[in-house]
Design a protein around this nucleic acid. Sequence first.
DNA 1: GGAAGTTACTTCAAGCCTAAAATAATGGCG
DNA 2: CGCCATTATTTTAGGCTTGAAGTAACTTCC
Lengths: 157, 157
Amino acid sequence: MDAVNRAVVEARDEADALRLWLRLFATANRVEGELSRRLRSEFSMTLPRFDLMAQLAKAPEPIALGELSRRLMVTNGNVTGLVDRLVDDGLVERRVAKEDRRSAVVSLTSAGRALFDTMAKAHRGWVEGLFAGLDDASRAALSTLLKEARTSVEEAT
Amino acid sequence: MDAVNRAVVEARDEADALRLWLRLFATANRVEGELSRRLRSEFSMTLPRFDLMAQLAKAPEPIALGELSRRLMVTNGNVTGLVDRLVDDGLVERRVAKEDRRSAVVSLTSAGRALFDTMAKAHRGWVEGLFAGLDDASRAALSTLLKEARTSVEEAT
DNA sequence: GGAAGTTACTTCAAGCCTAAAATAATGGCG
DNA sequence: CGCCATTATTTTAGGCTTGAAGTAACTTCC
C-alpha cells in the first residue's frame, strides 16, 4: 500500500464513529477512575456524593430532590440514596418543603460547606494536572468538539 | 467590557480544564446511557457484558480472566461476576487452562457468537446514528484530541 | 367536596464496580 | 524436597445505578 492509500485508510479510520466512541469512553473512564480514587483516599468521599455536594454548593438556595436528579442526570431513587448517606455523615440537611409537603429540599450543612470547599480546591487541581499535557488551543478545540458531539447525540435521541 | 476582553475571557473559559472535564463526562455519560438502554430493551443485554463479549469475539483464541480484566480496564473481581452471569446465560464458556491450573480461560459459545454478531451490527448502527451530526473532519479532530487527552492523563498518573 | 389523574419521593430487585482479604497453584532457591 | 514469594482467581463488604412498583400529597374537573 502506498503512502496516499495509507493516509486515506487512516483518515477513514480516524473518522470511524465506533472508534471515536471507544476513545471517548476510555478517556472519560480513565479520568473518572482517577478522580474517584483520589477523592476516596484523600477525603473518604465518593465522586457521586461530591457531585451532589457541588450542585448544592453552587445553588443559592436549597434544592428539591427532583431538581437535583435532573441536574445530576440520574434517577430519583439514586438521589434518595445519595442524600441519605450524606445526611448520615452530617454533610447535608434534608427538610420538607413548606409549600409542598411531597417535596424534600436539601442544602449543605456548615460542615458540608467547609468540607466541600476543601475538596473542591483539591479536585480542581487534580483536573488541571490531568489535562496539563494539553495546551489552551487543544483544550478549547476539544471542548468545542465535545459540545458539538453532545448536540449530535441529543438530536439523535 | 469590550469585545476584545470578552473574547479573552471566553477563550480562557473554553480552555478551563474543569469545564472541559465536565463536558467530556457529560457527553460520554449520555452516550453510554443511551447505548445501555437500547441494549437492554432490544436484547436484554447490559453494556459491560456486551463489552466483554466484544473482547472475546475479536480475540483469535480463548482469553484468561486476568487478561480480560486488563483489556476491559476493570478489576478481576468484576470480571469474575460478569463471566458468571454470561455462563449462566449460555453465552460464554469457562475452562481451566491446561498449562496453568490457576488460570481460567473463556470463549464465546456458538450461541454467544451468534447473538454477539447480531448485537454488534445494531450497536454499530446506533453509534453511527448518535454521532451522525459530526462530519468526518470533526470526528477525526475529536478523535485525535481525545488521544492527546488520554496521553496527558496517562502521563499525569 | 370528592374521584381521578399527576407529581414527588421512596422502596425494591438486580446488576455493576472497587478495594481488600482469602484461596489455590506456580516457580524459584537453598 | 520443601519453604516462600508470586500470580490467578474468587469472595466479601460497601457503594452506585437503573427501572419498576409503591406511597403520599397535590390538582383538576365535575
